[in-house]
Simulated assay, not measured.
Amino acid sequence: MFKLVRLSCRVYPIWSALGFTIMLAFTATAEDSSSIAYYSTSQFSVTEFDREMYLRNAPPEAGGGIGSRARNLSALSDLYAIKLLALEAKSLDLLSEAEKKWLIEYAISIELIERYLRKMVEDKLAATDWEAEAREQYIASPEDYRMPESVSLRTLLIRTEDRSESEAMRIAVDLLGQAKQPGSDFSKLVTEHTEDASAAVNGGLMSGIIRGQTVPPFDEAAFALRTPGEFSEPVVSQFGVHLIQLVEYSPAEQLTYEQVAQRIIKELKPIRAAQYRRGLQEEARERKLEGFVEHTEALDGLMSRTSDGALGRKFSIDPEF
């Protein structure tokens, strides 16, 4: 039994000129689940879909799926477009036999090179002494592993958009007096009186603020506080008048190597992978096989056939041109 599902696909840059709304027919039986049909006129196998995802560098299967739903739908749309356009283009005989042969050989070479580079990089990563690498990174840049000074606060805002600054200050001073009364709950005062909607939701709590994250007058007053529960005097900024209560003060701290070792290794691995890959590519460009001789005249002749030569003016990759 077939279940029809209509899916609107957003097509990604590779087929940016094409938009498709695809009608997919999925079977409910296992024996028919290996194919997907479009409009009952075109279909491809799950193997073709898997190959498409492979070419997109989709992550390996996890939990029975490949990539995200959006990525899968994009691949389905692209496969349909490829089949449709290839069918139309095939009848025009646009490639010579020599060009077809060259393209096949080139595609195989590129895939072999990619797999070779991937394996060589994986081998180099496996052989890397990550403990030594991480420790060297930590010693070279200790400032990168320093926790900055920070404060957690409760704040109450009286805006000056619809009142004068002096009127806002009078309200703030009165509320500050209430907040300093024994047994007063400042978070409750914030919820009842603040004119910052987001602060009203959580009692004005701002956690882990570091210097420079707030406007200068607020920043200066907040980082002058040291004792939890301490209040600043009312602070004026472009947003209005603020009351600030310190919840927690955390001085700057240099993290130990042991605290950050795994984080450093995690950050280094993709960096080293890219460096190893570039190194392999650069080494290949410079490597000269035994018996290599550079023929300057032949090279000059070849260059004359590129973008400013006859070949560059032809849309052809036929090696017999």
Rank of each mutant, 00 (worst) to 15 (best):
W130R: 15
W130D: 11
E131H: 07
A132M: 14
A132S: 11
A134N: 01
Y138L: 10
A140E: 06
S141V: 15
E143C: 15
D144L: 15
Y145T: 11
Y145R: 02
Y145M: 12
R146N: 12
R146M: 15
R146Q: 13
M147L: 10
S150T: 15
S150A: 15
V151C: 00
V151H: 00
L153P: 10
L153T: 11
L156I: 08
I158Q: 07
E161C: 07
E161W: 06
D162K: 14
S166C: 05
E167K: 11
M169E: 03
M169T: 07
I171D: 04
I171E: 12
A172T: 05
V173F: 02
L175Q: 02
L176V: 03
G177Q: 12
Q178S: 14
A179D: 04
Q181I: 06
P182L: 11
S184D: 08
S184K: 04
F186R: 15
S187K: 12
L189M: 09
L189H: 09
T191Y: 03
E192L: 01
T194V: 02
T194W: 00
A200C: 08
V201Q: 09
L205C: 03
L205S: 09
M206T: 13
S207L: 12
S207V: 15
I209N: 00
I209L: 04
I210E: 12
R211V: 14
G212H: 10
G212L: 04
Q213W: 01
T214K: 00
T214R: 01
P216T: 12
P217Y: 14
A221G: 12
A221S: 12
A222S: 07
A222E: 03
A224S: 05
L225W: 05
R226D: 14
T227W: 08
P228H: 11
F231T: 10
S232H: 06
E233L: 01
P234H: 01
Q238N: 15
L243I: 06
L243W: 02
I244V: 12
I244G: 08
V247G: 02
V247T: 12
A252T: 11
Q254F: 02
T256M: 11
T256D: 13
E258Q: 01
Q259Y: 02
A261V: 10
R263V: 06
I264D: 01
E267S: 14
E267M: 13
